[in-house]
Nucleic acid binder design. Structure first.
Ligand SMILES: [Mn+2]
Ligand SMILES: [Mn+2]
Ligand SMILES: [Zn+2]
Ligand SMILES: [Zn+2]
Lengths: 215, 215
DNA sequence: ATTGACATAATAATAGTTACCATGTACTTT
DNA sequence: AAAGTACATGGTAACTATTATTATGTCAAT
């Protein structure tokens, strides 16, 4: 009844690409790489095999903070450090310092099978970027959030682009077909995206990012 | 320009329910509790406020292994242990042993902002369950996987239930409107769910779990 | 009384992942 | 070799957890 594990061509390529990758890739990052060798492979196959291979102990599955699982070809005992901004993951070696044993009276009745140590912070690249853009958190990883514009947002932003000076939401309501309440709602969303700034209380103007987003 | 944080009634209830909870609940677990006090609250409000409150430092967001984020009312420095089977999370206190500083030459250029230490294993309840059901991993947390049956799966399982003894997939194909190939595909799925067992090579029979699933 | 910042409920949309199943391939046993 | 079955794949639908959108509500400061 033992499970047989066939080393198919797909699995070979997945393994070898993971070994060539020194970046702890996610399933879809690896999929993009594997697709170059096997153009007809399915994303589901990559997911399935990463799961199977990690259960078989041929690779390691990392469950670091964030939403996506990452995979590691290096089976040796080592810990990780990850960037809280871009989510890249690097290896660290705690050398002798890994005597992290939970004292028996502290184990809460668990049958302890392991321990994970993760450091986190800003990676070298993100440190530089963070210093430049002091304005705040540009959340990454979302497709629409940051670039996309809904119809109403676009309408408001276009009206703002036509204004020479900063103007209030009432002016915009007049310049568009929208009601004042709706305008202020859209402005809130646009401010969050960085497309609108408020030079004075209750006065708004389009930012350079906002102009870029309109094009 | 500083962000104002209004302590609304919803936020008060979310905070107080989290404080009353000693289980590191997920957003939807907390939602179920809060709904009893505020029946008209929205799940999105719970998500939004847990995020806001943790950013404001009033609660702690845990990103332990697994998919769902969990929240902790206890702000004191402490670490966690979680169950790899049921995903419950308990506190641990490493007392003096938390001098986990990354040596500067090992930080890979990161600006380190913190460290997470997590133990994992089987919680007391799951240890008992695991000993009983030795058959293998019943994956938890999935809605269909385990209980749900597709139409074809149900058809095959019902045919198996009518058989007195273990039978081959060809017999089932005859007893249903399905082709042999399809039958073996469905049997594979049913075996994975634990609804079908194979007492002898290429012979199948319905399990007690399978009978229960049919009712 | 207006205005607009902040908040909410309801819902649509999204990302990541897994389930489903027809089909394909490779072992085993005859 | 043929038959029968276990294991695997590709394509896609479905699912889970989370976030975005937006009409509407509340409230403090003009
Ligand atoms: Mn690694
Ligand atoms: Mn805790
Ligand atoms: Zn980074
Ligand atoms: Zn458990």
């Amino acid at each position: 009844m033992k499970k047989q594990l066939r080393m198919t061509h797909q699995r070979e390529v997945i393994l070898s690409e993971l070994g060539r990758c020194h970046t702890h890739p996610t399933a879809d990052e690896l999929y993009e790489r594997v697709k170059k060798k096997l153009p007809r492979i399915s994303l589901a196959t990559v997911y399935r095999n990463l799961e199977i291979l990690s259960e078989a102990g041929l690779i390691r599955k990392l469950e670091v903070s964030g939403r996506q699982k990452r995979f590691d070809w290096d089976l040796r005992q080592h810990d990780h450090i990850y960037c809280i901004r871009c989510h890249r993951v690097d290896n660290i070696d705690l050398e002798g310092k890994k005597q992290l044993d939970l004292p028996p009276h502290e184990n809460r009745g668990y049958e302890v099978s392991g321990c994970r140590i993760e450091f986190f912070g800003l990676c070298p690249q993100c440190r530089k970027i963070q210093q430049k853009t002091r304005k705040g958190e540009k959340k990454m990883g979302c497709k629409t959030c940051g670039t996309g514009l809904s119809d109403k947002q676009r309408e408001v932003l276009e009206a703002l682009a036509r204004c020479k000076d900063a103007c209030g939401s009432k002016d915009i309501a007049a310049a568009t077909s929208l009601e004042p309440k709706q305008v202020s709602c859209q402005i809130t969303a646009l401010k969050k995206k960085g497309y609108v700034a408020s030079p004075a209380r209750c006065k708004y103007e389009i930012t350079s990012e906002g102009k870029a987003a309109l094009s």
